[in-house]
Amino acid sequence: MSGTQRTDDGRGRLGSALSGLAVAVGCVLFLGGFVWGAVQYQPYTVPTNSMSPTVVSGDRVLAQRIDDAEVRRGDVVIFKDASWGDLPMIKRVVGVGGDKVACCGTDGRLAVNGTPIAEPYLRSQGPASTPFSVTVPEGRIFLLGDERMSSQDSRVHLEDAANGSVPRSAVTARVDAVAWPVGGVVERPGGFAALPGGVSQPGPVRLVVGSVVAGAALILCGAAYGPIARRLSRPARSRTEAGARG
């Protein structure tokens, strides 16, 4: 066997080993990403336009499973409460226990504990309801839809004993991203950031998607190495054999 053949064989073995490693690592990332996503997130189909334009009817969203201690103002949450029909609903948290929530000031803005809140996610900044002012009981949250003109939210239940609020424990998940049609991550609103507790941090959806995409890429590249390497090696072998016959 010539030196050239031995070198080619060595490179071939190294390439095969690296391609096998790429496929193995890719499988770990790909499957691990799916498992991680299944543990962290639950899919949810938005039933109405009450949260338009943030999410609209028919959108498929990924909602991170959280416990009640993780709920923050500004979060778009999925919850279920018997007094609201006992069905999964989606709204935005604008007040937590102890907050005084009022609407609307002379500029049409919502105020929490006397602080006007910038809400760039609203379709319209103008007043969209009869003025109200409530104090949220401890352990509960006050929720509004982003489409204030039509949303059936805490304002509808203001006459209830709990001032339209629902228990924190009613929240099952926080919307992190729009999966279909592809809409990206649902940003945390900065308007609530200065209030005590601040806003929540984004979930790991980017890391989960990155793991799946990177895993798929490694699997494809590793699997493609063999056929490509064989095709590229054929002309070289043909030239070597021709030279040996000559």
Rank of each mutant, 00 (worst) to 15 (best):
R109Y: 02
R109G: 00
L110K: 10
A111G: 01
T115A: 14
P116A: 11
L122A: 04
R123M: 05
S124V: 07
S124I: 04
T135P: 07
V136G: 01
R140A: 11
L143V: 13
G145Y: 05
D146T: 05
E147D: 10
M149L: 14
S151Y: 01
S154M: 01
R155W: 08
R155D: 03
R155Y: 07
H157I: 00
A161C: 00
R168K: 15
S169T: 15
A170N: 08
T172R: 10
A173D: 12
R174N: 06
D176T: 06
V178R: 10
A179Y: 09
G183S: 04
V185K: 09
E187G: 11
E187Y: 01
G190A: 10
A193L: 06
A193Y: 04
A194I: 07
G198E: 13
S200C: 01
Q201F: 09
P202E: 09
R206N: 15
L207C: 00
G210C: 12
G210W: 11
A214N: 08
A214G: 05
A216P: 04
I219K: 04
L220D: 08
G222A: 10
A223E: 03
A224W: 10
Y225D: 09
G226I: 06
I228E: 02
R230P: 02
R231E: 11
R231Y: 12
L232N: 13
S233A: 15
R234M: 10
A236Y: 03
R237W: 09
